[in-house]
């Protein structure tokens, strides 16, 4: 098997990896904010429910969550819901990743929001701003700056975590490399796959460095 063939096959899997990564971010970033509000609400039942949920998701392995999302509907209720989709395995993985990462993001948001001083809220209040205006024009912009470092950490972890989707047979780049291994008895594509992650994360690191620099026009 030639280098170019291996590259093409790995690229195929890498497409899935990138798609899973991108869609997880697209859905988990706003969902995380929603969960964050839930875990900070004054309405106690909702707050406890949300915090218990976050505890469960953060307290169990993502791999098990993939299993639960994908297999449990079929096993307990005789209804393999993801078989309705052409790429149901990918959808199941996406659901599990979005839930898992939204919970992690929600805690980062919460830390960021709680780090904003009471004085900022009071300054907005005496200037007659609404709660929405206060949050979106004063709190959130400052939260964004504070959470860039922990977020970039989590997002880089996500890139590598996507390879867990192969436990429910989503054909990502590692799965593709493993297949080459079992079909062609070639080991090196597995390490070659690592280079894809390395380059991708290298680009992300540059991007986050750029964002941090962009946001350094003010200090708190």
């Amino acid at each position: 098997m030639k280098f170019i063939d291996v590259t093409l096959q790995l690229l195929d899997g890498f497409g899935t990896t990138c798609l899973l990564f991108a869609l997880t971010l697209v859905f988990a970033l706003p969902l995380g904010l929603l969960i964050c509000f839930g875990s900070m609400t004054k309405f106690k039942p909702l707050r406890y429910l949300t915090r218990a949920f976050v505890w469960i998701i953060r307290g169990t392995p993502l791999m098990l969550q993939l299993f639960v999302v994908f297999y449990v509907p079929g096993m307990l209720f005789d209804n393999p819901i993801f078989s309705q989709f052409a790429n149901g395995r990918f959808v199941a993985a996406l659901v599990a990743f979005v839930i898992n990462y939204a919970c992690y993001f929600s805690e980062i948001y919460r830390g960021g929001i709680e780090s904003i001083s009471k004085g900022q809220y009071e300054a907005c209040a005496v200037l007659g701003m609404t709660k929405g205006q206060t949050f979106f024009h004063v709190v959130l912009p400052q939260v964004v700056k504070r959470i860039v470092p922990p977020m970039s950490n989590e997002i880089i972890t996500l890139v590598k975590d996507t390879s867990l989707a192969r436990v429910i047979a989503v054909i990502d780049i590692v799965f593709a490399a493993e297949t080459i291994l079992s079909l062609k008895a070639l080991i090196w594509p597995l390490f070659y796959a690592g280079a894809f992650y390395l380059i991708f994360n290298g680009l992300l690191t540059l991007l986050f460095g750029f964002i941090e620099k962009k946001l350094s026009y003010y200090k708190v």
């Binding site: 297999y71 079929g74 436990v167 429910i168 047979a169």
Partner: peptide, 17 residues
């Protein structure tokens, strides 16, 4: 034909995928 993880074969079967 559905490519699966061999270690998950029983759970794949029982969950009807």
């Amino acid at each position: 034909f559905q490519v699966i993880k061999w270690s998950s074969k029983e759970i794949e079967l029982n969950s009807k995928y």
